[in-house]
Amino acid sequence: MPFINVGETLKVSGKWVTHPDYGEQLKVELYEKLLPETTEAIEKYLASGLIKGVGPATAKKIVKKFGDQALHIISHHPQRLAEIKGINMEKALKIGQAFEEQRGLRDVVLFLQEYGISPTYSAKIYKTFGPDTIEEIKKNPYRLSDEIFGISFKTATA
C-alpha cells in the first residue's frame, strides 16, 4: 500500500487470502487514512516525517503545547505554531501548508479509489492538478486520459 507511513492510522477493507509462501494475509481492496486522536498517536504521526518541517523534536514540542488539539491547530491556525520556541512564523505557515497538501492527496486517493484508480496513479493525478484535483476531474474527467500517462479513456469515463 503506497503512501503509508509509520505512525498513521488506517481503516482497511479486503479479504483474507492464503499466500503460498507467506501464509494468511489481508488482501486490501480499499483503505482510508484516519487522523490520530490521542496525544501519543498524534506525536508519532507528526514525528513520522510525513509533514515537511516536522521531525521528532518538533512533534514533541507541538504536542506538549497543544495536546490533542495539535492537528486542529496545524490545520486551522498554523500561525499559532510560532508560539513554540524554535518555530518562527514562516516555518509555522510552511508546516500548515504541508499538512494541507497531505490532506489534499489523501482526499484524492479516497475519491479515485471508487473508480478503481490506484493510489500510485492518484498521486500522479494530484501532482498534475494540485489542490483542485477533485473539482477538475468532476468538471472534465476526460482530462485524465489526455494528461496522465497510463489512464485510459475507459478508466476516465468509468
Rank of each mutant, 00 (worst) to 15 (best):
Glu24Lys: 15
Glu136Lys: 10
Ile73Ser: 00
Pro2Lys: 15
Lys91Leu: 07
Pro2Met: 13
Lys139Arg: 05
Tyr45Lys: 05
Tyr45Met: 02
Leu71Gln: 09
Ala98Arg: 02
Tyr45Thr: 08
Lys27Thr: 09
Glu29His: 10
Leu10Val: 05
Leu81Cys: 02
Gly86Arg: 05
Glu135Ile: 10
Glu37Gln: 11
Leu50Glu: 04
Ala123Arg: 09
Leu110Tyr: 09
Lys11Tyr: 12
Phe66Ala: 07
Gly96Ala: 12
Leu50Asp: 09
Glu83Ala: 15
Ile4Phe: 06
Ser48Asp: 10
Asp107Trp: 03
Arg80Leu: 11
Phe129Leu: 05
Leu93Met: 08
Thr39Asn: 08
Gln25Glu: 11
Phe153Ile: 14
Glu147Gly: 00
Val109Leu: 12
Leu50Lys: 10
Gly7Pro: 00
Ile62Trp: 05
Gly67Asp: 08
Leu105Tyr: 02
Val28Gln: 01
Ile74Ala: 06
Ser152Cys: 09
Tyr31Pro: 03
Ile137Val: 06
Gln102Lys: 09
Gln25Asn: 04
Ile62Tyr: 03
Gln97Val: 11
Lys27Arg: 14
Thr18Tyr: 11
Val28His: 00
Ile137Cys: 01
Asp21Phe: 09
Phe3Ser: 11
Ala82Gln: 06
Gly104Arg: 00
Ile51Trp: 00
Leu26Arg: 06
Met89Glu: 04
His76Leu: 14
Glu32His: 07
His77Ile: 03
Lys11Met: 15
Tyr142Cys: 11
Tyr31Ser: 09
Ile73His: 00
Asp21Trp: 07
Val109Met: 12
Ala57Lys: 07
Thr155Ala: 13
Ile151Arg: 07
Ser48Lys: 04
Pro36Phe: 10
Ile125Lys: 01
Lys11Asp: 14
Glu100Ser: 00
Glu37Ala: 13
Glu136Asp: 14
Asp146Phe: 11
Leu26Cys: 03
Tyr45Asp: 00
